[in-house]
Every structure is written in structure tokens, then in C-alpha cells.
């Protein structure tokens, strides 16, 4: 079994007095396409930048592929990082980007790069500054893939893309995963972007990880219960309440449990990934809005 792609214990990062990320514990196994999802400003970019070795943590420990981020030149070669808005050099041509990639990366796969550029229809002589958003994203993705990393990190790669370009980007990314078998860690503020592609999700709200796990397992252990009004505290102890809402007579809970829900008073239904993530997001936002009563040490 290979080392976890991302492992964090008590990981935190502070900017001045504001915590962008705190108490982050993660253990993400290799071989997944991991979706990091959360609202804007939740700390997604901070977590990805720490994993990429571009930012040092304030507290806690983090390891990527079993080593500290950016531990050595060899380790740097195993991780590819595509920053937000898929940056490229505006005055360089597509072909010059590939030359640059080849000179800077010891494991550079020129054949894969040339093949991808041809298949997505990029003109090698075109300057990156003249490409559309979708084309620029494809160029950045090609650079990330041709580096032949064991882990490809992408920060909000499709945020600025139209739906067609977004689909094409995901098609290209999934082809590369099928072909080369690398792990992927990508972020988005939209669950719908990640629903088809990710088999592992990390939900980050207000600088804290709310839930993390394999999508299939999360979907199997979360249920929506609807029935006569009831206090959440009176649910069985194995049912962890994620979200609750009440009307005059009715209660709706989203619970997490490994046990079957046996109480006949409830109508039990499943959740899709979007419902599940949104339940955690609203729970996280609610906790954040509460007055913070922390003991000062």
C-alpha cells in the first residue's frame, strides 16, 4: 500500500490574527480523485498551497505522498500544482510552454504533452495570452499532466469556464487519470463540478474540515429522516445529527450512522452528494455564526 497522498494532524495556518485553516486532520489514501469543496473563503486555497509546499503551516503537521511538502527536488517532481485561474505566461506560445516544461521537469513526458495539445486543438504557435479561458485551462492541465506527477493538485480549475469548456476539462482530466493512474486533489465551490469526477470528498467550511471520506461510503451512511416533530437530542446515540430543521409539526434531520434506521415514525430517504455537502455547509455556517465562547489560555 502506498503512502497516503495527504495526511494532516492538527494542521493550521494563520494570517495575522485570522485563522485561514485550523484543527485540520486528514488521511487521504492514494488512488482517488479528491474533491475539496467549500464556499469561497473557507480555506481551500490555503490547504492546497500548504500541500503544494508553497505555504508553511502555522501549527500541526502535514505530509504529502509520505514526505513533508516540497521536501526535496525529487519530491517536488512527484507533485504538480495548478494554481487558481490556471495561470500561464501570456507572452509565450503554447510550444514554448512545452519547451519550458521539458527543461524544468526531469520526468517530463513530451509525447503525452504533444498528443494532448493536438487532441484539444491548441495551435502550438499561439501565444497563451490570446487563448480562451477554456484553452488556457487545457494548456495548464497539459503541463500538469506531462510532468507525470503522482499527485496533481488543481485549485478551482473550472471556476471561470463555461459549461462546455468545464466538461471538456473534466473529460481530459479523467482520461489522464485512467491512463496514468495518478491521484488528483482539486477544489471547487460548486459540488456539481465534482459530482461525477470525485470518489473522495473533503468539505471545508469556515476554515475547518466538516467531513471527509469516500463518496460511496458517505452516501451509504447519511440519511434524511422526515417525520413528526421531535427534538434532535432524542434520536438514538448512533445517529449523529448533521442538520435539522423543524416546522410546527414536522422535523427533518440529516443524520450520519452506520446502523439501519429502524424507527417506523421516520420516512427515510437517501441523499445525493450535493444534498450531503450542502447539509454540512449549512451546519458549518451555523456554527460559525454562533458567538464564540473560547477559553483564553
Amino acid at each position: 500500500m502506498s503512502a497516503p497522498v495527504l495526511r494532516a494532524e492538527g494542521l493550521g495556518r494563520r494570517y495575522g490574527r485570522r485563522w485561514a485553516l485550523r484543527d485540520c486532520d486528514l488521511d487521504v489514501p492514494a488512488g482517488h480523485v479528491v474533491g475539496l469543496v467549500g464556499p469561497n473563503g473557507a480555506g481551500k486555497t490555503t490547504l492546497l498551497s500548504v500541500a503544494a509546499g508553497q505555504l508553511a503551516p502555522t501549527t500541526g503537521t502535514v505530509s504529502v505522498l509520505g514526505r513533508a511538502p516540497a521536501a526535496s527536488p525529487a519530491h517536488l517532481g512527484r507533485v504538480a500544482f495548478v494554481a487558481q485561474d490556471t495561470p500561464t505566461y501570456a507572452s509565450l506560445t503554447v510550444a514554448e510552454h512545452l519547451t519550458l516544461g521539458a527543461r524544468l521537469n526531469p520526468r517530463w513526458d513530451a509525447a503525452t504533452a504533444a498528443d494532448r495539445i493536438a487532441r484539444v486543438g491548441l495551435d502550438p504557435s499561439a501565444k497563451a495570452g490570446r487563448l480562451s479561458g477554456g484553452q488556457r485551462a487545457q494548456l495548464a492541465l497539459t503541463l500538469g499532466i506531462a510532468k507525470r506527477p503522482d499527485l496533481l493538485i488543481l485549485d478551482e480549475p473550472v471556476a471561470a469556464l463555461d459549461p462546455l469548456a468545464c466538461r471538456e476539462f473534466h473529460q481530459g482530466l479523467m482520461e489522464a487519470v485512467a491512463d496514468l493512474g495518478m491521484s488528483v486533489l482539486l477544489s471547487s465551490h460548486l459540488v456539481s463540478d465534482l459530482e461525477r469526477t470525485c470518489d473522495y470528498v473533503v468539505v471545508l467550511v469556515d476554515s475547518r474540515v466538516q467531513v471527509a471520506g469516500e463518496v460511496e461510503d458517505l452516501l451509504a451512511t447519511h440519511h434524511r429522516l422526515t417525520g413528526p416533530r421531535r427534538d434532535g437530542a432524542r434520536l438514538p446515540s448512533d445517529q449523529h445529527v448533521v442538520a435539522a430543521s423543524h416546522t410546527g409539526r414536522q422535523s427533518t434531520f440529516v443524520v450520519r450512522t452506520r446502523e439501519p434506521v429502524l424507527d417506523p415514525a421516520w420516512r427515510v430517504s437517501g441523499l445525493d452528494l450535493e444534498d450531503l455537502v450542502l447539509s454540512y455547509m449549512s451546519a458549518g455556517a451555523r456554527d460559525a455564526a454562533r458567538p464564540v465562547l473560547e477559553v483564553r489560555r
Binding site: 480523485v33 466538461r167 473534466h170 473529460q171 481530459g172 482530466l173 479523467m174 482520461e175 487519470v177 485512467a178 491512463d179 461525477r196 469526477t197 470525485c198 470518489d199
Partner: peptide, 16 residues
């Protein structure tokens, strides 16, 4: 092939 399917559906290869 798995690659062909994910290239059109944009789904995770594990799904296929």
C-alpha cells in the same frame, strides 16, 4: 475502454 468512457462521460475511472 475505460479511457474512452471517461473521455466522453467525464466520470471517475473507478465508476467505469
Amino acid at each position: 475502454t475505460v479511457k474512452e468512457v471517461v473521455g466522453t462521460l467525464a466520470v471517475n475511472p473507478n465508476t467505469v
